[in-house]
Nucleic acid binder design. Structure first.
Length: 420
DNA sequence: TCTGGGGTCCTAGGACCC
DNA sequence: TCTGGGGTCCTAGGACCC
């Protein structure tokens, strides 16, 4: 059996932990730059606010006092997430962290008749110790556990735990689940399935496997098997990422090359730091720019360029200088840019980098690695105490729109003192 | 005026090989 | 007019997830 633990309205719940006056109110959390709605309380869902709604479309409700908006505060969410995860990890033999607000628990070795009771205990403990409400779905496959967790979340009668442990319950649950809500079936596939007359998950599992394979290929087959109770979604992914990306939209559009370069330099430095944190090194650095895709009146340009590194690297200097080289190749002064990003790809283990035999300055490499190490130590507080001259001066908060930010209650000493 | 950020996997098709 | 058959590898783009 798998148990999927899903934090309810996670970002909103995090805000509520430290501002209990938000309890029972319509609350939304906004994306970077206060761009769009990325989390909603039950009350704001009931008001019809959809995921991804641009903030300006609900601004009037905020002004009228009917809706409370919070800028996103990922430091806070990340910290509360790790507290939730550590409680889960302490309770069951194995957990697979799936996202910031979800984890699969592997219930191997736990007597079947105790699973529900253990999960009910977890719901209470996480609520009491961290303050976050969670829902848990229990089932023989991950896809079914997801469905069970939806029921646990939707119907208060379950008290946060729903288990699918026999065929009767499974078929009942599938018949009540629209196919577009199934894990692994997105918008495009859902439309295609509905065109074939498939409305519920039960309709889908009723189709013969040959037909499913023909129309929805490998991916569709896996989902089909999972819904039929046969495990097909692999075990956890390897712990190291295959690519790392840092990108941001800008509060204002940018045309100036120097300004753009300093932003790209920041993104590159961030990628390099993430690489080192993970013990990886990159063989390729990609830079991309976006003009404002919502401005039909402006010329559009979405260039991207990749630079191969002769030797895999993770020093800030090397990643940054490649990124700026890339920027030079794609930058055109006649456009207004709204977003940029740096991606590092083809990652290898940092301690297994293949060095060339000839014409290679190993001393230079070591010096760069040393500098990066020192930078990491000095920057470990999360503030950019030291940076390369190509990077921006000043804090990131200077350039991001964030009108409703809560404090970093659980991680920043200043903010903790403020609360007291 | 104002529209997020970060990942993974799969497939089709092209390049290339014999 | 008529132009083989079979592989592998790589990449871009599309689909999905949160």
């Amino acid at each position: 059996m798998y148990a999927l633990v899903d934090c309810n309205n996670f970002f909103v719940s995090c805000e509520r932990v430290f501002r209990p006056q938000l309890e029972g109110k319509a609350v939304v959390v906004l994306s970077n730059n206060d761009g769009c709605v990325v989390a909603r309380s039950n009350e704001s869902k009931a008001m019809g606010i959809k995921m991804g709604t641009p903030f300006y479309q609900v601004k009037d409700m905020v002004k009228a006092g009917r809706l409370i908006a919070c800028s996103s505060n990922y430091t806070l969410y990340g910290d509360l997430s790790s507290r939730v995860m550590s409680i889960l990890a302490d309770t069951v033999p194995k957990i697979e962290i799936y996202s910031i607000d979800e984890a699969f628990l592997c219930m191997d070795g736990i007597p079947p008749d105790r699973i529900r009771e253990i999960c009910a205990g977890l719901v209470k403990r996480v609520r009491k110790w961290v303050g976050i409400p969670v829902s848990i779905g229990i089932a023989p496959t991950k896809t079914l556990a997801k469905i069970a967790s939806h029921f646990a979340k939707r119907y208060p009668g379950y008290k946060g735990v729903c288990q699918i442990d026999d065929d009767e319950k499974r078929l009942k649950a599938l018949s009540l689940t629209p196919v577009r809500e199934v894990w692994g079936i997105g918008r495009r596939l859902a439309v295609k399935m509905e065109d074939c007359g498939i409305r519920t998950a039960l309709d889908y599992v009723g189709r013969p496997p040959e037909w499913v394979k023909e129309h929805f290929m490998l991916h569709g087959m896996k989902t089909w098997m999972e819904l039929n109770g046969r495990v097909s979604v692999e075990e956890e992914r390897p712990e190291k990422r295959k690519s790392i990306c840092t990108s941001r939209s800008f509060a204002e559009m940018i045309a100036d090359r120097a300004e753009l370069a300093s932003r790209v330099a920041d993104f590159a430095a961030k990628c390099a730091a993430k690489l080192r944190e993970e013990g990886s090194a990159a063989q390729q650095v990609t830079v991309f720019l976006y003009t404002n895709r919502f401005r039909n009146d402006l010329p559009q340009y979405f260039p991207t360029v990749s630079i191969r590194l002769p030797v895999a690297a993770n020093s800030t200097q090397e990643i940054l200088s490649s990124a700026l080289k890339g920027l030079d190749l794609i930058y055109r002064p006649e456009y207004l840019y709204k977003k940029a990003g740096v991606m590092v790809e083809d990652l290898v283990d940092a301690d297994a980098v293949q060095l060339p035999i000839f014409d290679y300055d190993l001393g230079l490499r070591h010096r760069r690695d040393r500098i990066s190490e020192v930078m990491d130590r000095l920057n470990s507080s999360g503030h950019n105490v030291v940076r390369l001259a190509a990077q921006r001066t000043g804090d990131y908060t200077d350039v991001v729109r964030s009108g409703f930010r809560s404090r970093r209650y659980s991680t920043s000493l200043d903010d903790i003192i403020e609360v007291k």
